[in-house]
Protein backbone atom coordinates (compact mmCIF):
# COMPACT_ATOMS: atom_id res chain seq x y z
CA UNK A 1 0.00 0.00 0.00
CA UNK A 2 1.36 3.36 -0.98
CA UNK A 3 0.58 6.30 1.22
CA UNK A 4 0.90 9.77 -0.27
CA UNK A 5 3.50 11.58 1.78
CA UNK A 6 3.71 14.63 -0.44
CA UNK A 7 1.58 15.85 -3.31
CA UNK A 8 0.24 19.01 -4.85
CA UNK A 9 -2.21 21.01 -2.76
CA UNK A 10 -5.62 21.32 -4.40
CA UNK A 11 -5.78 25.11 -4.27
CA UNK A 12 -2.50 25.46 -6.16
CA UNK A 13 -3.49 25.70 -9.81
CA UNK A 14 -2.38 22.95 -12.16
CA UNK A 15 -0.12 25.22 -14.20
CA UNK A 16 3.60 25.85 -14.48
CA UNK A 17 4.62 28.78 -12.30
CA UNK A 18 6.20 31.70 -14.15
CA UNK A 19 9.16 31.95 -11.78
CA UNK A 20 12.80 31.38 -12.69
CA UNK A 21 14.41 28.02 -11.86
CA UNK A 22 15.17 27.83 -8.17
CA UNK A 23 13.19 30.92 -7.22
CA UNK A 24 11.56 30.20 -3.89
CA UNK A 25 8.39 32.13 -4.69
CA UNK A 26 7.12 28.71 -5.75
CA UNK A 27 7.72 27.21 -2.32
CA UNK A 28 5.76 30.02 -0.68
CA UNK A 29 2.94 29.65 -3.20
CA UNK A 30 2.72 25.99 -2.27
CA UNK A 31 2.70 26.77 1.45
CA UNK A 32 -0.12 29.26 1.00
CA UNK A 33 -2.09 26.70 -1.01
CA UNK A 34 -1.44 24.03 1.63
CA UNK A 35 -2.68 26.36 4.35
CA UNK A 36 -5.84 27.15 2.35
CA UNK A 37 -6.42 23.42 1.82
CA UNK A 38 -5.81 22.48 5.43
CA UNK A 39 -8.19 25.16 6.67
CA UNK A 40 -10.75 24.19 4.02
CA UNK A 41 -11.22 27.81 2.99
CA UNK A 42 -10.61 27.83 -0.77
CA UNK A 43 -14.24 28.59 -1.51
CA UNK A 44 -14.33 31.61 0.77
CA UNK A 45 -10.88 32.98 0.05
CA UNK A 46 -10.03 35.94 -2.17
CA UNK A 47 -6.36 36.47 -2.97
CA UNK A 48 -4.79 39.73 -4.10
CA UNK A 49 -1.85 39.58 -6.50
CA UNK A 50 0.69 42.42 -6.54
CA UNK A 51 2.84 43.94 -9.25
CA UNK A 52 6.25 42.34 -9.52
CA UNK A 53 7.38 38.78 -10.15
CA UNK A 54 4.26 37.42 -8.48
CA UNK A 55 1.95 39.54 -10.63
CA UNK A 56 0.63 36.35 -12.20
CA UNK A 57 -0.32 34.88 -8.83
CA UNK A 58 -3.94 35.26 -9.94
CA UNK A 59 -3.27 32.30 -12.24
CA UNK A 60 -1.63 30.19 -9.56
CA UNK A 61 -4.30 29.87 -6.88
CA UNK A 62 -7.66 28.20 -7.32
CA UNK A 63 -9.52 30.66 -5.12
CA UNK A 64 -11.00 33.89 -6.51
CA UNK A 65 -8.20 36.34 -7.30
CA UNK A 66 -7.75 40.06 -7.93
CA UNK A 67 -4.74 41.71 -9.51
CA UNK A 68 -3.98 45.00 -7.72
CA UNK A 69 -2.10 48.12 -8.81
CA UNK A 70 1.53 48.28 -7.66
CA UNK A 71 1.67 48.55 -3.88
CA UNK A 72 -2.06 48.85 -3.43
CA UNK A 73 -2.86 45.27 -2.50
CA UNK A 74 -3.57 46.07 1.18
CA UNK A 75 -6.02 48.80 0.11
CA UNK A 76 -7.69 46.47 -2.38
CA UNK A 77 -7.82 43.78 0.30
CA UNK A 78 -9.39 46.32 2.65
CA UNK A 79 -12.13 46.99 0.10
CA UNK A 80 -12.83 43.29 -0.34
CA UNK A 81 -12.77 42.49 3.37
CA UNK A 82 -15.00 45.43 4.28
CA UNK A 83 -17.46 44.37 1.58
CA UNK A 84 -17.32 40.69 2.57
CA UNK A 85 -16.23 40.47 6.22
CA UNK A 86 -16.83 36.72 6.48
CA UNK A 87 -14.48 35.86 3.62
CA UNK A 88 -10.76 35.20 3.96
CA UNK A 89 -8.62 37.77 2.16
CA UNK A 90 -4.89 37.56 1.62
CA UNK A 91 -2.35 39.63 -0.25
CA UNK A 92 0.83 38.24 -1.72
CA UNK A 93 3.41 40.99 -2.18
CA UNK A 94 7.07 41.48 -2.88
CA UNK A 95 9.40 43.95 -1.20
CA UNK A 96 9.12 46.69 -3.82
CA UNK A 97 5.37 46.41 -3.81
CA UNK A 98 4.92 46.27 -0.04
CA UNK A 99 7.82 48.30 1.33
CA UNK A 100 8.46 50.95 -1.34
CA UNK A 101 5.58 52.06 -3.54
CA UNK A 102 2.98 50.56 -1.20
CA UNK A 103 4.45 51.54 2.17
CA UNK A 104 1.53 53.81 3.04
CA UNK A 105 -1.05 51.17 2.16
CA UNK A 106 0.86 48.56 4.19
CA UNK A 107 1.39 50.70 7.27
CA UNK A 108 -2.18 51.99 7.38
CA UNK A 109 -3.79 48.61 6.78
CA UNK A 110 -1.65 47.43 9.69
CA UNK A 111 -2.54 50.44 11.84
CA UNK A 112 -6.24 49.88 11.21
CA UNK A 113 -5.80 46.28 12.20
CA UNK A 114 -7.36 45.31 8.91
CA UNK A 115 -8.41 41.70 9.35
CA UNK A 116 -6.39 40.34 6.44
CA UNK A 117 -3.37 38.13 5.89
CA UNK A 118 -0.28 39.48 4.17
CA UNK A 119 2.33 37.18 2.69
CA UNK A 120 5.40 39.31 2.14
CA UNK A 121 8.24 38.05 -0.02
CA UNK A 122 11.52 39.74 0.88
CA UNK A 123 14.23 38.88 -1.62
CA UNK A 124 16.06 42.20 -1.38
CA UNK A 125 15.73 42.99 -5.07
CA UNK A 126 13.35 43.95 -7.88
CA UNK A 127 13.18 40.72 -9.84
CA UNK A 128 10.64 41.43 -12.58
CA UNK A 129 12.24 44.64 -13.82
CA UNK A 130 15.71 43.12 -13.87
CA UNK A 131 17.51 43.37 -10.55
CA UNK A 132 17.16 46.92 -9.26
CA UNK A 133 17.67 48.02 -5.68
CA UNK A 134 14.76 47.20 -3.38
CA UNK A 135 13.78 48.93 -0.13
CA UNK A 136 15.13 45.78 1.51
CA UNK A 137 18.40 45.54 -0.45
CA UNK A 138 21.25 45.14 2.00
CA UNK A 139 23.96 47.73 2.64
CA UNK A 140 26.68 47.03 0.12
CA UNK A 141 24.41 44.94 -2.10
CA UNK A 142 25.15 45.37 -5.77
CA UNK A 143 22.10 45.84 -7.95
CA UNK A 144 21.62 47.45 -11.34
CA UNK A 145 20.65 50.73 -9.65
CA UNK A 146 23.27 50.42 -6.91
CA UNK A 147 26.11 49.21 -9.13
CA UNK A 148 28.77 50.19 -6.59
CA UNK A 149 26.87 48.55 -3.75
CA UNK A 150 24.07 50.10 -1.75
CA UNK A 151 25.60 52.96 0.17
CA UNK A 152 23.34 53.92 3.08
CA UNK A 153 24.73 57.47 2.87
CA UNK A 154 23.49 57.78 -0.69
CA UNK A 155 20.69 55.24 -1.16
CA UNK A 156 19.56 55.04 2.44
CA UNK A 157 19.04 52.08 4.69
CA UNK A 158 16.91 48.98 4.20
CA UNK A 159 13.55 48.68 5.93
CA UNK A 160 12.94 45.95 8.48
CA UNK A 161 9.24 45.50 7.85
CA UNK A 162 8.27 43.12 10.67
CA UNK A 163 10.08 45.23 13.27
CA UNK A 164 8.38 48.37 11.98
CA UNK A 165 4.88 46.90 11.80
CA UNK A 166 5.21 45.23 15.20
CA UNK A 167 5.01 48.69 16.77
CA UNK A 168 1.44 49.09 15.51
CA UNK A 169 -1.40 47.93 17.75
CA UNK A 170 -3.46 46.70 14.80
CA UNK A 171 -0.95 44.00 13.94
CA UNK A 172 -2.02 40.77 15.60
CA UNK A 173 0.80 38.64 14.32
CA UNK A 174 4.08 39.36 12.54
CA UNK A 175 6.70 36.73 11.94
CA UNK A 176 9.76 36.59 9.74
CA UNK A 177 10.57 33.19 8.32
CA UNK A 178 12.82 31.87 5.55
CA UNK A 179 12.56 29.16 2.93
CA UNK A 180 16.24 28.34 2.68
CA UNK A 181 16.08 24.79 4.05
CA UNK A 182 13.44 22.14 4.80
CA UNK A 183 13.32 22.98 8.51
CA UNK A 184 12.67 26.65 7.82
CA UNK A 185 10.15 25.82 5.11
CA UNK A 186 8.19 23.81 7.66
CA UNK A 187 8.43 26.72 10.10
CA UNK A 188 7.22 29.06 7.34
CA UNK A 189 4.28 26.78 6.75
CA UNK A 190 3.30 26.99 10.41
CA UNK A 191 3.56 30.77 10.32
CA UNK A 192 1.41 31.05 7.19
CA UNK A 193 -1.16 28.72 8.67
CA UNK A 194 -1.24 30.84 11.81
CA UNK A 195 -1.54 34.03 9.78
CA UNK A 196 -4.69 32.68 8.13
CA UNK A 197 -6.08 31.42 11.43
CA UNK A 198 -5.48 34.83 12.97
CA UNK A 199 -7.74 36.33 10.32
CA UNK A 200 -10.39 33.62 10.60
CA UNK A 201 -10.54 34.29 14.34
CA UNK A 202 -10.93 38.00 13.63
CA UNK A 203 -7.85 39.08 15.53
CA UNK A 204 -6.41 41.65 13.16
CA UNK A 205 -3.71 41.95 10.59
CA UNK A 206 -1.27 39.08 10.25
CA UNK A 207 1.89 39.33 8.21
CA UNK A 208 4.43 36.67 7.40
CA UNK A 209 7.65 38.03 5.94
CA UNK A 210 9.45 35.34 4.01
CA UNK A 211 13.14 35.67 3.23
CA UNK A 212 13.16 34.30 -0.27
CA UNK A 213 15.75 33.80 -2.99
CA UNK A 214 16.25 35.41 -6.38
CA UNK A 215 18.98 33.33 -8.01
CA UNK A 216 18.62 35.08 -11.37
CA UNK A 217 19.00 38.67 -10.19
CA UNK A 218 21.44 37.82 -7.42
CA UNK A 219 23.62 36.10 -10.02
CA UNK A 220 23.85 32.91 -8.02
CA UNK A 221 22.95 29.27 -8.48
CA UNK A 222 19.72 28.23 -6.74
CA UNK A 223 21.71 26.47 -4.01
CA UNK A 224 24.12 29.42 -3.56
CA UNK A 225 21.12 31.73 -3.34
CA UNK A 226 19.74 29.76 -0.40
CA UNK A 227 23.15 30.06 1.24
CA UNK A 228 23.03 33.84 0.69
CA UNK A 229 19.69 34.00 2.52
CA UNK A 230 21.45 32.40 5.49
CA UNK A 231 24.74 34.27 5.42
CA UNK A 232 23.74 37.73 4.18
CA UNK A 233 20.04 38.24 4.80
CA UNK A 234 19.41 36.54 8.13
CA UNK A 235 21.97 38.61 10.06
CA UNK A 236 20.19 41.79 8.91
CA UNK A 237 16.71 40.31 9.01
CA UNK A 238 16.61 37.97 12.02
CA UNK A 239 13.97 35.26 11.90
CA UNK A 240 11.35 35.09 14.58
CA UNK A 241 8.00 36.26 15.87
CA UNK A 242 7.98 40.06 16.18
CA UNK A 243 4.55 40.40 17.62
CA UNK A 244 1.87 37.95 18.62
CA UNK A 245 -1.29 39.46 20.00
CA UNK A 246 -3.40 36.44 19.08
CA UNK A 247 -3.51 35.21 22.66
CA UNK A 248 -2.19 31.86 21.57
CA UNK A 249 -5.54 30.56 20.30
CA UNK A 250 -4.55 30.91 16.70
CA UNK A 251 -1.60 28.53 16.99
Amino acid sequence: MAELVFGRPKSLSDVTLSYCPGCTHGIVHRLVAEAIDELGIEGKTIGIAPVGCSVFAYNFFECDMIQAPHGRAPAVATGVKRALPDRVVFTYQGDGDLAAIGTAETVHAAARGENITIIFINNAIYGMTGGQMAPTSLPGQVTTTSPYGRNPKIQGNPIRVCEMLATLDGVAYAERVAVDCPKNVLRAKKAILKAFKTQIEGKGLAIVEVLSSCPTQWGKSPAEALEWIRTAMMPYYPLGVYVDRTGGDAE
Binding site: M1, L4, V5, G7, C23, C181, V185, L186
Partner: peptide, 21 residues
Protein backbone atom coordinates in the same frame (compact mmCIF):
# COMPACT_ATOMS: atom_id res chain seq x y z
CA UNK B 1 13.25 6.88 2.81
CA UNK B 2 10.26 8.99 1.71
CA UNK B 3 11.36 11.89 3.89
CA UNK B 4 9.98 14.30 1.24
CA UNK B 5 12.71 16.88 1.85
CA UNK B 6 13.18 17.03 -1.93
CA UNK B 7 9.51 17.84 -2.40
CA UNK B 8 9.52 20.36 0.45
CA UNK B 9 12.28 22.32 -1.28
CA UNK B 10 10.89 22.01 -4.80
CA UNK B 11 9.73 25.50 -5.90
CA UNK B 12 7.57 24.02 -8.64
CA UNK B 13 5.75 21.33 -6.67
CA UNK B 14 6.97 18.88 -9.28
CA UNK B 15 7.65 16.05 -6.84
CA UNK B 16 5.22 13.51 -5.44
CA UNK B 17 6.35 11.21 -2.64
CA UNK B 18 4.65 7.98 -1.71
CA UNK B 19 5.59 5.84 1.23
CA UNK B 20 5.15 2.13 1.11
CA UNK B 21 3.22 0.99 4.16
Amino acid sequence: IACALCAIMCPDTAITVEKNV
